[in-house]
């Protein structure tokens, strides 16, 4: 173990942490799904955690690691509250789209309208089926409500 190694380790960890933060930032700015936005926020927190642990090792102090522990606690609280709020919002608008809540914008900002929505690709996999045989069973209406995709 030498000083150069410790400095190189700190340097590399800070860069990886910064990259995680930057990628989370890009996702937060670009994506529109509420759940993906929160995943991106968590990713930014991960970047901070990596940097803090690297500093804790370099400075030889427990403070960084303990701060990361509190970050995890706060992230758990935040995830619980945010997921509840997102679920409540999704129940009202039937969507997870940020755009559904653009009524909250400033009064002098024009409404955002989607343009050039790409075509949906056909489902790639065709699932195997059995050939129908025998008596036609009665249709189960409950089963019609199940989704075939997640």
């Amino acid at each position: 173990m030498n000083a150069g190694h410790e400095v190189a380790l700190l340097h590399n960890y800070l860069l990886v942490g910064g990259l995680l933060f930057a990628i989370g930032l890009v996702g937060f700015l670009v994506r529109r799904n509420l759940i993906v936005l929160f995943l991106c926020a968590e990713m930014m927190l991960q970047g901070i955690s990596v940097s803090l642990v690297a500093w804790a090792r370099y400075v030889d102090d427990w403070g960084g690691q303990i701060l990361v522990l509190f970050i995890i606690v706060v992230a758990a609280c935040e995830a619980a509250i945010a997921m509840t709020l997102i679920l409540a919002l999704a129940r009202r608008s039937n969507k997870l789209d940020m755009l559904a809540w653009q009524d909250l914008r400033e009064a002098n900002v024009a409404a955002y309208v989607d343009r050039e929505v790409p075509e949906e690709r056909a489902p790639s996999a065709t699932w195997p089926t059995l050939p129908p045989a025998g008596v036609q069973p009665p249709v189960d209406e409950q089963a019609q409500l199940y989704r075939n995709h997640v």
Binding site: R32, D97, M98, L99, Y112, V117, E120
Partner: peptide, 9 residues
């Protein structure tokens, strides 16, 4: 397969 996952701002 929602529309808003396939486009951005």
């Amino acid at each position: 397969r929602a529309v808003y996952d396939r486009i951005t701002w």
